[in-house]
Computed example of a mutant assay.
Amino acid sequence: MKPLYPIFLDISDRLCVVIGGGPVAERRVGGLLDAHARVRVVCLTATERLQQWAAMGRIELRMEPFQPVHLDDAMLVFAVTNEHTVNEEVARSAKERNLLVNVADAPEQGHFIVPSVVRRGDLCLCVATGGQQPKLTAQIADELAERYGTEYEKLLQLLGKLRSEILTATATDPQLRQEALERLHEQTPKLLAMIRAELDPEPEARAVLNQLLRPWLSQSSPKEGQR
């Protein structure tokens, strides 16, 4: 495999087409739905979960042989059937339309591979071995999932909230903004430990930031005679 360029795509409300209806297709669709994509699945037989998603209106399911027209308006294409010749046809049709395509059984025939993913809210950890060692990829992903638990989702929610408030409060003072963001980052280990102990870390974080920002806020507030 050639060296690959890692990238995170915003596919929210963008059409992604999955050709195939087996377990691999189901995993691809699940990941696409997590990213809020619109999903079209084309296959002759579909797993029970794919059928359930279709019944719920979460995906468009077309139980028919692949045709190039199925790729209309797509942003990404996934060829994941158990028929190599069909996957080749999907890849060829996608390339003719200048669409990015992933080919499950022949990664070198596509434009990208799908890594193993560990999600903790906005934290997204991806592992890939260039399509060469899927089992090793899965093993490393499992290790990351154990290392980075659900507490990181709560941590990122809090940090994101406080960061937004810092940016607003220091809109005219870039130096103070940087100092406040660095101070917030320094608090990360303590906040994480509090979350793991099932304690609310927000008061602790706010106390540190308020102490830092109070002098600036008092200076920027209107004086009594200026109101």
Rank of each mutant, 00 (worst) to 15 (best):
residue 107 P to K: 11
residue 64 E to Y: 05
residue 102 N to E: 00
residue 111 H to V: 06
residue 122 D to T: 07
residue 111 H to P: 13
residue 26 E to G: 08
residue 52 Q to E: 15
residue 70 H to D: 14
residue 2 K to H: 15
residue 69 V to L: 14
residue 211 Q to L: 14
residue 218 S to Y: 10
residue 191 L to W: 02
residue 205 A to W: 07
residue 106 A to W: 11
residue 204 E to C: 13
residue 69 V to S: 15
residue 156 L to G: 03
residue 21 G to I: 00
residue 221 S to C: 13
residue 172 T to S: 14
residue 134 P to L: 04
residue 152 Y to T: 07
residue 50 L to V: 00
residue 147 R to L: 14
residue 124 C to R: 15
residue 122 D to R: 08
residue 121 G to Q: 03
residue 92 R to F: 09
residue 69 V to I: 12
residue 133 Q to L: 13
residue 54 A to M: 06
residue 118 V to G: 04
residue 180 A to M: 03
residue 171 A to G: 01
residue 104 A to Q: 02
residue 62 R to W: 02
residue 96 E to R: 11
residue 191 L to N: 06
residue 183 R to G: 14
residue 152 Y to V: 09
residue 4 L to M: 12
residue 119 R to E: 04
residue 103 V to P: 03
residue 192 L to I: 02
residue 120 R to N: 05
residue 144 L to D: 04
residue 174 P to T: 04
residue 214 R to I: 07
residue 195 I to H: 02
residue 116 S to I: 11
residue 201 P to R: 01
residue 36 H to N: 12
residue 77 V to P: 02
residue 175 Q to R: 15
residue 63 M to L: 13
residue 226 Q to M: 13
residue 53 W to K: 01
residue 131 G to I: 05
residue 208 V to I: 15
residue 80 V to D: 00
residue 95 K to W: 07
residue 63 M to G: 07
residue 85 T to A: 13
residue 172 T to R: 08
residue 22 G to L: 06
residue 5 Y to R: 10
residue 124 C to G: 10
residue 142 D to M: 11
residue 201 P to C: 06
residue 134 P to I: 01
residue 98 N to G: 14
residue 97 R to T: 05
residue 211 Q to Y: 09
residue 31 G to Y: 01
residue 38 R to T: 12
residue 219 Q to W: 12
residue 141 A to K: 08
residue 166 I to H: 04
residue 138 A to M: 09
residue 107 P to M: 13
residue 117 V to C: 06
residue 168 T to Q: 15
residue 84 H to P: 05
residue 144 L to P: 06
residue 175 Q to K: 14
residue 224 E to P: 01
residue 53 W to M: 08
residue 125 L to K: 07
residue 74 A to H: 04
residue 207 A to R: 10
residue 5 Y to P: 05
residue 78 F to Y: 10
residue 177 R to E: 07
residue 150 T to K: 15
residue 70 H to R: 04
residue 206 R to I: 08
residue 83 E to W: 02
residue 24 V to G: 06
residue 62 R to V: 03
residue 162 L to V: 02
residue 68 P to R: 08
residue 149 G to A: 11
residue 172 T to K: 09
residue 63 M to W: 06
residue 111 H to K: 08
residue 14 R to E: 11
residue 118 V to M: 03
residue 97 R to C: 06
residue 28 R to K: 14
residue 15 L to T: 05
residue 58 R to I: 00
residue 79 A to D: 03
residue 118 V to L: 08
residue 134 P to K: 00
residue 42 V to M: 04
residue 139 Q to H: 15
residue 220 S to V: 14
residue 139 Q to P: 08
residue 195 I to F: 03
residue 224 E to F: 12
residue 204 E to R: 04
residue 141 A to C: 12
residue 3 P to I: 14
residue 185 H to R: 15
residue 191 L to E: 03
residue 46 A to D: 05
residue 55 A to V: 09
residue 196 R to T: 10
residue 12 S to A: 15
residue 33 L to Q: 07
residue 96 E to M: 12
residue 212 L to H: 02
residue 74 A to K: 07
residue 119 R to T: 08
residue 165 E to A: 01
residue 202 E to Q: 11
residue 152 Y to A: 04
residue 211 Q to K: 12
residue 101 V to D: 03
residue 92 R to W: 05
residue 51 Q to N: 11
residue 35 A to I: 10
residue 96 E to N: 13
residue 65 P to S: 09
residue 209 L to Y: 00
